[in-house]
Design a protein around this nucleic acid. Structure first.
Length: 575
RNA sequence: GCGCCCAUAGCUCAACUGGAUAGAGCAACAGCCUUCUAAGCUGUAGGUCGCAGGUUCGAGUCCUGCUGGGCGCGCCA
């Protein structure tokens, strides 16, 4: 994250007093402006040049636009009290700094920097000139990244709880792409192994039952719900009673047909959520391409594999794990661990600089094993970022809604989308930090009104669009060259400040892989716009003011649209 | 028993990764539409940041130990 690097790279840069030369929005711009001065002053005081100056935006109003704690961090080295150091620093800084209104010492020794309002006009100009790219970043340019998410087995429909994985994964992919990364969206398709066989058996049982064998036993751990029967009916429609005899072929047909059916159903659901993967990686190709065999051979050659009780074990205890685990059952089938290691080995071999895995908390135990496995194979696992989101609780009218799979009445993601809409689904699942348990309030989600946070954002966007339509009707155009010096109202300044933060918010979200920060930011942006809207009339104001405010509103519209785009939520022009 | 996650206003959650007086939204109360969308805005009230220590100029944030909740700990995935 280039905050300090960037600052140092420009340490020798000399300010000529015109902010237009900086050409970069927001905090970075203010920081780049002031940092060289602070460093020069520190140098004059004899402070080690390697020291990094940290700036931050004070959360308290009245503490200036930018503040630094440098005096406090230097207190120890200089053996002085922070306020005295701050005073010295201030003297070395001098009073001849253009664009700066004042610098104050506050609290234990903060330096609070207040810029003159023309800085804001320059920032808004920059943002306006960015056009459709407002909030975009290039920090990830030239870097490849693979984001794996959803990855639900094709043994049924996505259930409502899958929604969090879908929304978190896709939003993280969007954020990274927004910041310039070359992103591959991947779905690991678990179409080998036991679960698929069980699906085949479940469908076959329904097939036989549909053909009149009412006594035919449904497998004990079979998949309930309507769909195995529906798939069975499709097989009957196509091939009639051709599989009345229970053969390998019959089960294979059921399994294959079921897989295809589930795959289609899952894709339809994802499509509604505006989620489109680039790669569907089939687990069975790991076997057919010999990658599973290669993986186990490599592990074996490193002495990490042994046989016991007729099974093949991975010596995880030699890799710092708590216990060894079976990777090939005595039946000859692999456990999920082996193909998982082979899959990650494959992703690493494909050369991605960063690999992001999105998992639910229920898979937490598998991760250390897989990472230990690929690390033993000689890969750098620091390239793998594992995002573990906590579970979701659905709540309605203050009561937890319980869904039981056994009852067959499961709550599918399709059901959820139908009830509250795709936009709300996407937003609700990313609006909380991934590490916290998410309470999904169905009542609030269904509410198409003021309480619903999604509408709050969309409403701000629609409101701006409405003004722009009216302006257009009146022949008033948005002019990127409008004189912005007329913007002095606190809410105008506040809005510009918030807008200029957007790029940094996106970069931080990309660095921390925390999508909720984008949702938080947009709520803040919407609120700031509503404040501005309420107090600063646009149409009908003095011509210069009208023009400047119209531009400000238009920049806000684009920022909001971009932000909603990153969240995968629609930005309606009318509501 | 072991591992990981969580605990902040009545409820759901933030807190710029160690900073200043911990912030929003719901819910409660009181206001604002003859003017660009009231799906909005303004104000009031609401806190021992689970508990106890520790680290330092400074801790909701870091370390340790508790307590309470979640998810795991399979020759299922």
């Amino acid at each position: 994250m280039g905050r300090c690097e960037g600052l140092h790279a420009h340490a020798g840069w000399c300010c000529k007093g015109s902010v237009h030369q900086i050409g970069e929005g927001g905090r970075m711009m203010m920081e780049r402006y002031i940092a060289p001065h602070v460093e020069r002053a520190l140098k004059a005081m004899g402070v080690d040049e390697a020291i990094k100056v940290h700036f931050e935006i004070p959360r308290q109003e009245g503490h200036g636009h930018l503040s630094t704690n440098i005096a406090m961090t230097l207190a120890k080295a200089l053996k002085g009290n922070p306020r005295q150091i701050a005073t010295d620093l201030l003297q070395h800084l001098g009073t001849e700094l253009p664009l700066i209104e004042k610098i104050e010492i506050a609290g234990p020794g903060f330096l609070n920097i207040t810029f003159s309002t023309e800085v804001y006009h320059a920032m808004l100009r920059d943002l306006a000139l960015q056009g459709a790219d407002i909030g975009r970043s290039t920090v990830g340019a030239g870097r490849t990244c693979n984001v794996e998410y959803v990855s639900a087995n094709p043994t049924g429909l996505l259930h409502a709880g899958h929604g969090r994985n879908c929304a978190v994964g896709d939003t993280i992919a969007n954020i990274l792409q927004w910041c310039g990364y070359d992103v591959t969206r991947e779905y690991y398709f678990n179409n080998a192994g036991n679960q698929m066989n069980m699906l085949g058996k479940s469908i076959y049982a329904r097939y036989r039952q549909e053909l009149g064998d009412v006594e035919y036993e449904f497998p004990e751990n079979g998949y309930h719900g309507d769909y195995p029967r529906i798939i069975a009916q499709q097989i009957i429609a196509k091939d009639g009673d051709a599989y009345r005899e229970e053969t390998e072929e019959a089960l294979t047909v059921c399994r294959k047909t079921g897989e295809a059916w589930c795959f289609e159903a899952i894709q339809r659901t994802l499509d509604v959520l505006n989620i489109h993967h680039d790669v569907f990686f089939n687990e069975d190709t790991l076997y057919s391409d010999g990658k599973v065999a290669q993986t186990i051979d490599e592990l074996r050659s490193k002495g990490l594999v042994y046989e016991k009780d007729g099974a093949t074990w991975l010596a995880l205890t030699q890799m710092g794990q708590q216990q060894d685990k079976v990777i090939v059952k005595s039946t000859g089938e692999a456990t999920y661990r082996l193909p998982d290691i082979a899959y990650h080995r494959d992703k690493l071999q494909r050369g991605f600089e960063m690999i992001v895995d999105i998992f639910g908390a229920d898979h937490i135990a598998t991760i250390p094993d897989v990472l230990a496995g690929v690390e033993a194979l000689g890969f750098d696992t620091s390239r793998v970022k594992v995002i573990i989101h906590q579970m979701v609780t659905f709540v309605e009218n203050g009561e937890v809604v319980k869904f039981s799979k056994r009852s067959g009445k499961s709550f599918t993601l399709d059901d959820l989308i139908e009830e509250v809409g795709a936009d709300v689904v996407r937003f609700f699942f990313v609006m909380r930090a991934v590490g916290t348990h998410l309470e999904f309030d169905l009542g609030l989600a269904k509410e198409e009104g003021e309480k619903n946070p999604v509408f709050y954002l969309q409403y701000a966007h629609a409101r701006i669009c409405s003004i722009l339509r009216k302006a257009e009707e009146q022949g008033i155009a948005v002019e990127p060259t409008s004189d912005l010096s007329v913007l002095v109202h606190p809410h105008e300044i506040e809005l510009i400040t918030t807008l200029s933060r957007m790029q940094l918010v996106m970069e931080r979200a990309a660095a921390s892989l925390e999508p909720h920060t984008v949702a938080e930011y947009l709520r803040d942006l919407a609120a700031t716009y509503h404040h501005f809207y309420h107090d600063c009339r646009i149409l009908g104001a003095e011509p210069e003011l009208q023009s400047a405010r119209l531009l400000l509103a238009d920049v806000t519209r684009r920022a909001m649209r971009n932000g909603l785009f990153v969240l995968g939520v629609q930005a309606p022009e009318r509501m």
